[in-house]
């Protein structure tokens, strides 16, 4: 029984971190689908969101709801600003320059925040508190429930947005064929900005969820989180939204199970090994080809 309850709580842990990976992976996947850019700065947007939450709860003592909204708004704005300032001027240049720019922005955010707030981690007080659920001998924490529920809601909302709205249709059209979409009267700049806004808003939500489970913000927290979420996006099939969700959960579960087996130091290795195996066996990812709803 003890084994089963450990396994159960690890599965919940996996779902919780998997949810965060999935939200971040969605941002990677959307941006890649639309402008074929590996947006390395995406992980650092989460970092910025986390700092916003820290500032507003620990320094200004805002209500949690206010700081959550603030984090999402700031992340979204930041994502759009980055796109306008750094990526838009390079839209017609080789993809490598775009990639290097993304890396540069990521460096800039990390070092800028390190300069302003120092290299140390900032502890964020618990701001999502509520009752935890007991199932037999296992406990599901409130933050895990919130994380999983919020993620599912976000995904449902995003799917609706992409499938049913006009902007979603425009996004799908641009990712299908940028030139043809433009000829059909789709405003390219608006659509791309909107994609970045969506991805960054999800990153903002992810930063809140991250803080609710780990409670710390540091300038480099985004880079590893971003890389793993990126692996999740590739695993699911980069450019595919359901793939990114699935990939996030698979990576989260794999990490949790490796930890449960007592090999937690190999967590990162396993994640990247999954990446290599997927790329060698099926480079398009789990849902790359059959599901063509790219964004």
């Amino acid at each position: 029984m003890a084994f089963l309850s450990t396994l159960f709580s690890q599965v919940i842990n996996g779902l919780q971190s998997g949810s965060i990976y999935a939200l971040v992976a969605l941002g990677y996947s959307m941006v890649y689908g639309i402008i074929m850019l590996l947006n390395f700065a995406h992980g650092d947007i989460i970092m910025v969101g986390a700092y916003v939450v820290w500032m507003s709860t620990a320094n200004f003592g805002f209500h949690p709801i206010v700081s959550i909204l603030l984090a999402v708004v700031v992340s979204t704005t930041l994502g759009v600003v980055i796109e306008k300032v750094a990526y838009a001027p390079l839209r017609s240049s080789p993809r490598l320059s775009l990639l290097i720019t993304a890396i540069g922005i990521s460096f800039l955010l990390e070092n800028g925040f390190q300069l302003i707030f120092g290299a140390g981690a900032k502890v964020v007080p618990d701001f999502l508190t509520g009752p935890s659920v007991h199932l037999g001998s296992a406990t599901i924490s409130f933050s895990a429930i919130v994380t999983i529920v919020v993620t599912v809601l976000m995904m449902a909302g995003l799917t609706f947005l992409v499938q049913k709205t006009k902007l979603g249709k425009a996004m799908r059209a641009v990712s299908e064929d940028m030139g043809a979409a433009q000829l059909m009267g789709i405003n390219l700049n608006t659509t791309i900005s909107f994609t970045f806004a969506m991805g960054s808003a999800l990153a903002g939500v992810a930063s809140v969820l991250y803080l609710s489970s780990y409670g710390q913000a540091s300038p480099t927290m985004g880079s590893m989180l971003g890389l793993k979420a990126f692996v999740a996006a590739v695993l699911g099939g980069i450019g595919s939204l359901p793939g990114a969700m699935l990939g996030g959960f698979v990576i989260g579960m794999a990490e949790a199970l490796v930890s449960a087996a007592g090999l937690s130091v190999w967590k990162d290795g396993v994640v990247f090994a999954i990446l290599i195996i997927v790329l060698l066996v099926k480079p398009t990812g789990l849902m790359g080809k059959p599901m063509t709803e790219k964004v």
Partner: peptide
């Protein structure tokens, strides 16, 4: 292209993890 970039990134990280552990 991008996939080569990603897979070499993966190998690089694995080398680091293996050296650590």
């Amino acid at each position: 292209g991008d996939y080569l970039a990603i897979i070499t990134l993966g190998f690089g990280e694995i080398i680091r993890v293996v050296l650590t552990n």
